[in-house]
Design a protein around this nucleic acid. Structure first.
Lengths: 339, 339
DNA sequence: TTGTAGGCGTTATCAC
DNA sequence: GTGATAACGCCTACAA
């Protein structure tokens, strides 16, 4: 902590009261022009830096927002953070960034720490969904303001900003069915208890069902969000004999799709001729790949912006209602689907 | 801010003094087992959350580190942040993340705010180099602990963790000269006042000079760190007639190189046959590109780790000496250079 | 083992 | 326009 010049020290140096110095520095009305100038000058020369801790203790306001991110290196999230910052910067809030590394235990720790730091509100992309409402129940009971972004817990009286995952997943699956006439479509599934993974999985199944395509459970591999997860899941599918394999794959996200593409390539097969692959995210790499990846573009920046805006509204207006904000994605048709 | 149960309230509920409650909750020695249990139980049921603001005001310690990043969406930095987190998490520090958007004005604002929040130290990747030492002079005078990472100000009594930019840039240029026998090598330069841009530029020139290759100033284009900068810079070079063009390009970083590749492709030329391109960073996309990019791999995660470690040492040990830590890169030879 | 007094740096409030 | 006092929630130092 820095060498800490205080209001009191300035006051003593100037033979004024602390309050007068405080008023001068904070641009309050009731200070004479002369005094104000003297104080500001002295503050400058003494190297005064206001102590926000003390301020916050009195004002019960920190101008600070906590952000809990599942995986800082998943390219989607830095983009979300940029959106959050865009908003918080103009409203003068600072960001506490924490990485939960896809682990609920770390997520809880992070939230607790943020509460102890008395952040004005928290933006969370949570790694759980159904069970264990209890944790966030208590958080809310304590009066902490929360907005979920991307990965959320539903029906909870908590606002969330997400993407129309279900609908988008259904659409990209239908693209495979309608445009390319695939009827053998596998799915690389994400963790079962994460909202976005559930929604996307639901969209996939719905599309098949609607088109009377039977669902082949051996083409649905449970995995995670990382590239290695997709790689391993795809390897399992490739163990099937050629006749029994799907001809197209939808992955829960782009990292997973990219892992799958790697496995396919290593197996000496080509995309999309042997197996088509589509993803979800529009990862920074998607359009640069050897076979550019057809995927669902998620407006990450927008998600961040909207979530931050909503949270700040909740912070600054007690009876701001909870809201589910769904941002629309767009299909990015590239070559990996066969187009 | 949350509904704030205080030590005092717990004390009153239990008819104890605040101090006893404080001691019990902070696991101090001198509390009887019974009292401790009672207190902890009550704290739980009342939903007590310690107030770090008040604690920090007394202890003059926030267990908080500020991070100033030039561009959160440049893939290098999230990876650095991951490294920082790895360390801070085990030492129980929290991270204030700020994005300076490559603007020195925003960088200054960010640092000032972090000081007001009384962070224990600051990690900065700065956007300036030579002029305007004065700002960081004052910061240091105020007793704030600073460690630079990646982009630094030199000879300053401030520790820095960076990469051997000069040497690496020289090496990758020499690869073009020695292995591929290029002698017409252009350079897409970064901002003149940023340390890493200077070092890399110096390495490029040194390599040419050492090999008695004359430097053609019309092949050196001043630009920025973004993809669009590389794209525009390359367009300028492509305006030259075919005979007057360089046959290889070194870009200040990978985004710039990727932009340049785009421009080359749009001009109907092929990489590396018509023009070879090499970069610097090993961006997440580099190995996935249609023509995989030869580049210098910067161990971003390691940079983050070392910087955070050094800062925490400085924080926790007053007379920790300043240090220049240089992390070694490695050449990633792919296809864009002609290999 | 427990309690009291005072202070961390700031501001709200009321008095002059 | 300026100042004195108390309070924000917690902890150190000392006393009982």
């Amino acid at each position: 902590m820095s060498s800490d010049v205080t209001l009191k020290q300035i006051a003593e140096a100037l033979d004024l009261s602390t309050m007068t110095v405080s008023r001068a520095i904070n641009n309050r009305e009731n200070v004479s022009g002369k005094t104000r100038e003297k104080v500001l000058e002295k503050a400058r020369t003494m190297g005064y830096i206001p102590n926000d801790l003390a301020k916050s203790l009195v004002s019960r306001k920190t101008y600070t927002i906590g952000v809990v991110i599942p995986k800082i290196t998943h390219a989607f999230f830095p983009e979300v953070v940029r959106g959050i910052e865009e908003v918080t910067k103009t409203c003068n809030y600072q960001l506490f960034l924490t990485n939960a590394d896809e682990q609920f235990e770390l997520e809880k720790e992070a939230v607790n720490t943020l509460q102890a730091k008395r952040v004005d509100g928290i933006l969370v992309s949570t790694s759980i969904t159904k069970h264990d409402h209890s944790f966030y129940d208590n958080i809310l009971k304590s009066g902490t303001k929360v907005v979920f972004f991307d990965r959320y817990i539903d029906n909870f009286g908590v606002s969330r900003v997400s993407v129309n995952d279900y609908e988008s997943s259904r659409q990209i699956t239908e693209h495979l069915i309608n445009v390319h006439e695939y009827d053998k479509i596998g799915y690389l599934q994400g963790p079962e208890n994460v909202s976005i993974a559930q929604q996307r999985y639901r969209g996939y199944r719905e599309a098949l069902t609607t088109h009377d395509i039977p669902i082949n459970e051996s083409w649905i591999i449970l995995g995670g969000f990382q590239e290695t997860d997709g790689y391993q899941a795809m390897q399992k599918i490739l163990e099937l004999s050629e006749q029994r394999r799907p001809h197209a794959i939808l992955a829960v996200n782009d990292p997973s799709a990219i892992g799958a593409m790697k496995a396919i390539k290593e197996a000496g097969l080509s995309i999309p001729e042997d197996i088509a692959v589509v993803g979800f995210t529009d990862d920074i790499r998607a359009s640069y790949l050897e076979v550019p990846l057809t995927t669902v573009q998620q407006p990450a920046y927008e998600v961040g912006k909207r979530a931050a805006k909503k949270l700040i509204q909740i912070i600054e207006n007690e009876d701001e209602p909870a809201e589910n904000i769904e941002i629309q994605t767009s299909l990015k048709i590239r070559k990996s689907c066969g187009c």
